[in-house]
Design a protein around this nucleic acid. Structure first.
Lengths: 199, 199, 199, 199
DNA sequence: CATGAATGAGATTTCATTCAT
DNA sequence: GATGAATGAAATCTCATTCAT
């Protein structure tokens, strides 16, 4: 087993919380439901998290870290000489896969990040900002390589690209092949690259 | 005076509700706050709307109608011979202006549409779907004219483009010139057209 | 037409109120529903009645008067030489018919009289008390004639007999032949008279 | 101590609820008052009962069980050879004592059973029906023994007898000797037995 | 005669949170 | 580590009532 009993319970809570936050938003999520989903009594949550806000903060932190780690390792898997277009494409694919993958971990970020005044109050925006900066870099690389028009503002462009990807997350989970189609469409639209892996 | 007394009160409520829904989401919005913003007592809301759901439904209906009307009339203002690229660009500009302008009326749609299981329950998705179909048409036109790669799925593409625009709506309202920059960036990214009106 | 327009509206309100009070009790009855049933707007009720209590008071007064009138005239229709048993039997039949007859006028009394602390507050108990005293007389007559055991307390007995009759009023209305069966059973039980009009 | 802390609180709530339901009816009863009478905060009720309906259901169930148990054990205390008249009389005495005694536990049933559409919704009518069937048996026994006219319909008769007893329950509680007088009057009226225990 | 618009109090229910055990 | 019991505030909604028109 991984870690102590407390650590495993903690994970169950985070899973349940991510799922609820993703599906109902911050205000729409009740701790009672999270407790039920975790197989705990309501009061027991407070042994693991000090408040609803703290729980949200952790969920967001984990979810961003999850996406970041996926994208980073996808880039690391590329040959050192990979082109900026290849790197950008790989990042898009990894990010979309992370968003749509199991257990709502990814979805949670997206759906909540935009909508919650609570996030700022909770100080979780820092994680998000770091990750965003990372994407700005990818955009600038792609512009330098001619994959994205150079005269566009890189920050605005990054917001549009990331926003477009986030908009693909819905309440139902998509099967992997549809996620792949999404990724190729993003790439085709943004980089104007001929599509790969396309049926 | 515009309309009856009730009609004016109704408008005040809808304004307040749009603003609250946009800022706090459905679950996070309290009718008490809407009442306060409208200068009414809580109970008085129920003279004008039968429930919170009904209020949401009306807000969404009005907001979508507002955006639709803006975009339609922007297209109608174009010369009959306008190219598909011109039409697409005009639509993007009008849509973004509608979203960022006019006391959250537009913003409400965006921020809520994605997050609310309530919308479906409330039957407001129909308005949204109609408007979405309208954008699919614009994408197909642009593809036929070579402004958007023809091999991309038009529905997915439409979701990405509209999603990118919606992601630009934040909690604070943007000044008109920033909205214009957003629009030109979207156009530059999607149509790869040389930017116009750019400082 | 009977009376002025106001008088006719007043009747519609009383009918609706009797029906609602009978079915839902005092607290469970809402003026809005009464207004709807009467084809009026809520506020318009107050032109005819000064409060919910006043409306209740009127309904009870009318309902008791209705039953009283029915029973009195049934007794008046008897030959002057009619026996006490005959008179008692006729009263039972008339009372039960009044209770189960159309438009809830009768039912209203029964179902509300017992349950409402409001009745006392509203001063409507006087009508009820008068009618009750009338029944005490009938019981005493029947005792004198040997139809009811003489050693029983007439007031308690009256409460039991009237209570038994009232218990027959339910939420659904009974067809006339079932009301007749009820009446003959009451008579058979209380007076031990051979049943009449029995199939 | 009797049972856990929760069990004791639950009892306090049920007592308060029975008293309120009996005095004010279902619609007229406010949970806030029940909470106050129980020495709890309003919200705390929901730890013990999921809704007002559930509370009503429990009160009725308990009250019927209480009356049933009293009557059953009164019959069990009789010699095996006791006559039907004796059994019927004992049942009447026990039922009336149960109704008028013990902090509204009994009264609650009576006053609510008739008036509440809610009872059906709440599924509590089953308990009531079972108890009613039990009384039908007593009536039939008494008819066989000649205590009640054999030609009367036993179900209607049972409704009348039980209805008469229920009508004796008022808002104020009666002292034991008055309850005894009531019982003897019912017996004298229904069975035409010479009265016993009579001052 | 009747409506339209609003009020303020109160209803039931749900919530995040606490703390003794 | 976790539960059981309770709290107090806030949520949505309904109610009887008022009064200008």
């Amino acid at each position: 087993m991984t870690g102590t009993k407390a650590a495993r319970t903690r994970l169950r809570i985070l899973d349940a919380a991510a799922s609820e936050f993703a599906a109902q938003g911050y205000a729409g999520t009740s701790l009672r439901r999270i407790a039920e989903e975790s197989g705990l009594q309501l009061g027991s949550l407070y042994f693991h998290f000090t408040s609803k806000d703290a729980l949200l903060s952790e969920v967001v932190r984990e979810a961003v870290a999850f996406a970041e780690e996926r994208v980073s390792s996808a880039l690391d898997d590329l040959p050192a000489a990979a082109s900026a277009r290849t790197r950008f494409s790989a990042a898009v694919r990894a990010h979309l896969r992370a968003l749509h993958e199991s257990s709502d971990r990814g979805a949670a970020v997206v759906r909540i990040i935009d909508l919650s005044p609570e996030l700022t109050a909770v100080g979780a925006h820092q994680h998000v900002r770091d990750y965003a900066r990372f994407w700005t870099g990818l955009v600038i690389e792609a512009q330098a390589a001619g994959g994205i028009p150079g005269q566009l503002d890189p920050v605005i462009t990054r917001d549009l690209v990331v926003g477009a990807m986030h908009a693909t997350v819905g309440r139902r989970q998509l099967p992997p092949d549809q996620v792949a189609r999404l990724a190729e469409t993003v790439i085709g639209l943004v980089l104007r690259q001929p599509l790969t892996n396309w049926p």
